[in-house]
């Protein structure tokens, strides 16, 4: 089942649009917890690899700005939201699983999928 889902995502034209657009990402955290730190580090690394120069990461600390949690329907922490390009995507966790993070962000091409899937596993 998961395989078919992946295949469906490969057909989306994210690969082409991604080349031109600037990615807007928002990471919701709650204080400097090990999970938030890890999530930010993982995200940064991943963006450098896949979206060099084409990404913006905004970190929202809900401890400081709790009123922002409801707007983006934040329940779990950390939560990564892909604001742009549309559609909105949402990944929860410290992003330690690269493959799933890439699937979530719809960043993976077919070749990368097998390659990185193998590496992260």
């Amino acid at each position: 089942m998961k395989k078919s889902a992946r295949r469906a995502e490969q057909d989306t034209p994210t690969g082409t649009t991604a080349d031109e657009e600037v990615w807007e990402l928002r990471l919701y955290v709650a204080g400097q917890t090990p999970k938030s730190v890890a999530a930010f580090a993982n995200l940064k690394k991943l963006c450098e690899e896949h979206l060099p120069g084409r990404y913006k990461i905004e970190v929202v600390d809900l401890i400081q700005q709790p009123q922002l949690a409801a707007g983006d329907q934040i329940v779990a922490i950390p939560t990564l939201i892909r604001k742009l390009p549309p559609p909105l995507r949402r990944i929860v966790g410290d992003l330690r699983n690269r493959e799933r993070t890439l699937v979530g962000l719809q960043l993976r091409s077919a070749t990368m999928a097998t390659e990185q899937g193998g590496i992260s596993a």
């Binding site: 919701y28 709650a30 917890t33 999970k35 890890a38 999530a39 993982n42 809900l62 401890i63 709790p66 949690a69 934040i74 329940v75 779990a76 922490i77 950390p78 939560t79 995507r89 949402r90 990944i91 929860v92 966790g93 410290d94 992003l95 330690r96 699983n97 690269r98 799933r100 993070t101 699937v103 979530g104």
Partner: peptide, 13 residues
């Protein structure tokens, strides 16, 4: 999409 460890701190907040 779930990737790695998380908690429900968002809900608490």
């Amino acid at each position: 999409e779930e990737s790695g460890d998380y908690d429900l701190e968002g809900l608490f907040v």
